[in-house]
């Protein structure tokens, strides 16, 4: 049975890896970066939303916001546990960054990450009240959905499995956002929502920024990426348009 095949060749043919011990060093680094990005983004997202729970106009809204905070933290934990299997100190990790910290709302961040953590750059912008929070949750939730689609296919099976469990929960958060916005539209907040969309859309977009072709090919050969950022971004834009259309916010 012992036919020799390199891990690289195995991966390029769609093979899956199942634990840290058989992960090559460079693959490991890229995989951990992806996992850290997910964990940090969930923790930062949850922390940001925790601050707006009390801004919710009614009990239903506050329940929805609190649920999102709980579940995003839970989802972070699911992947943080995998980071722990690579030797990360999970207890220290979860508390080592100021997850609630944000930069001024008019900062020029682009796709740069902050100095201290791997959260997606957009999560360094602060939320500005309830309408803004719900709008951001829709824009960002749809974008995260695109990335979770990618992550469900990654060649590191424990991560793909974890994301498969997490994805329906995150999808539900997007539904909550759209339901919340529908109520806000009824309350005559359409203009405020449109202003928020105009703020958030270009700030979420850099998530789908260009990855140098060579690097993307490397990641694809390792089974860590499948669809290009261009494809993911286009798909996200189309979904967001559809959602805004349903909410009658496009005009």
């Amino acid at each position: 049975m012992a036919e020799d095949m390199s891990i690289e060749s195995y991966l390029s043919q769609g093979g899956k890896l199942s634990n840290p011990t058989n992960v090559p060093p460079r693959y490991r680094a890229e995989l951990m970066k992806m996992m850290a990005t997910f964990v940090d983004s969930e923790l930062a997202g949850a922390a940001g939303f925790a601050d707006v729970i009390n801004a919710g106009p009614g009990i239903k809204e506050r329940i929805a916001a609190a649920k999102i905070v709980l579940e995003k933290t839970d989802n972070a934990d699911a992947v943080l546990r995998l980071l722990g299997e690579f030797g990360a100190d999970t207890a220290r990790y979860a508390t080592s960054h100021p997850w609630t910290s944000r930069l001024p709302r008019d900062s020029e961040i682009g796709s740069r990450r902050s100095e201290h953590d791997m959260r997606l750059s957009v999560l360094n912008y602060p939320l500005d009240g309830w309408v803004d929070a719900v709008t951001m949750n829709l824009c960002m939730g749809l974008a995260v959905g695109q990335q979770l689609g990618e992550l469900q296919q990654v060649s590191y099976q424990p991560l793909a499995d974890a994301i498969r469990r997490v994805a329906p929960i995150e999808t539900r958060h997007v539904e909550l956002a759209e339901e919340g916005l529908a109520r806000l539209v009824e309350q005559g907040q359409s203009d405020a929502i449109k202003a928020s969309v105009a703020y958030w859309r270009p700030r979420v977009e850099p998530m789908f920024g260009d990855v140098p072709q060579e690097r993307f090919e490397q990641l694809r050969n390792w089974g860590l990426r499948h669809r290009s950022n261009g494809e993911l971004g286009a798909s996200w834009n189309a979904q967001l348009d559809k959602s805004l259309d349903r909410l009658d916010l496009t005009a």
Partner: peptide, 12 residues
């Protein structure tokens, strides 16, 4: 010494 990921990804 502080560290988290030990993979050069977290800068802790």
């Amino acid at each position: 010494a502080p560290y988290a990921c030990k993979a050069g990804v977290c800068s802790t």
